[in-house]
Amino acid sequence: MKKVFSFILLVSLLFSTITPVYAMENGVMQKPVMVNDSSKSAENKVERLNDRANKEINRRVELLNKLITKINSVKRLTPAQKLSFVAEIQTEISSLQSLSGKIKSDTDPLVLKADVQSVIKSYKVYLLFVPKIEIIAAADRLANVADEMSSYSAKLKTRIDVAKTAGTDVSSLETLLADMNAKIADAKTQASNAIGVVLPLTPDEYPGNVAIFQSARKTIQAGRLDLVTALQDGQKIRKGLKGEKMEKMGSESAKVTKEPEPTQ
């Protein structure tokens, strides 16, 4: 009797917590009722296609607008180059917007399908401009950081020179500084090369020019690694300078303690 009672209690306890879980599972597994009406399903299909096409067009327009902002912030393009880029992007945006209007008014499913496909197939400017401007912007940033590091390196040189004048052996620090400067110079070259390679690319050559984009990307990555190495050199120089200072302080304090006490 005892066992039966405890079993019933246990089962009821378990089901009190498990039931909602099963209910939830059943809720998820419930499938929507199938509509057999073919005209309704065709209408739904057109609606779905319309919706997706508009989403894609909006996504592209949004990204192209961001590219305009990026282009305007690039320092290593002439104002004429910037204007040319912006004009091309604006044209692309306008044609995408008119395509969006056409897609909305399309009633023939075949025409609609062709228009929707053209969002991807016929708008090469977008496909070219996204990687092109991203590479130009990244290369520009690379060159900017390299400039900042040149200034940093000059300051480090001043401190090394001061230490040298004070009679410290700074040969290792000078070697590091030379390496740092070489890396910074290389990063600048890489940035300039990347911009030079992608600037002349046109939408008509797409996708034949994808390999050039890939090489430009690698150039930027190489430039970035140059800067990372230059930074590490800079850190080592600072540590060396700090160590030098500490040593000096140590030797000065040693001198103080070694001073002979006055004899009485």
């Binding site: 296609l49 894609e56 991807i120 991203e134 940033r141 950081v145 970035r224 990372v228």
Partner: peptide
Amino acid sequence: NSMKNLDKDVKSVDQGFNDTPVNL
């Protein structure tokens, strides 16, 4: 800070290459 921004830009370059459109 500039290096952090550079890293972001390098990532954007990759995103530009891997642009995935909506399934049409």
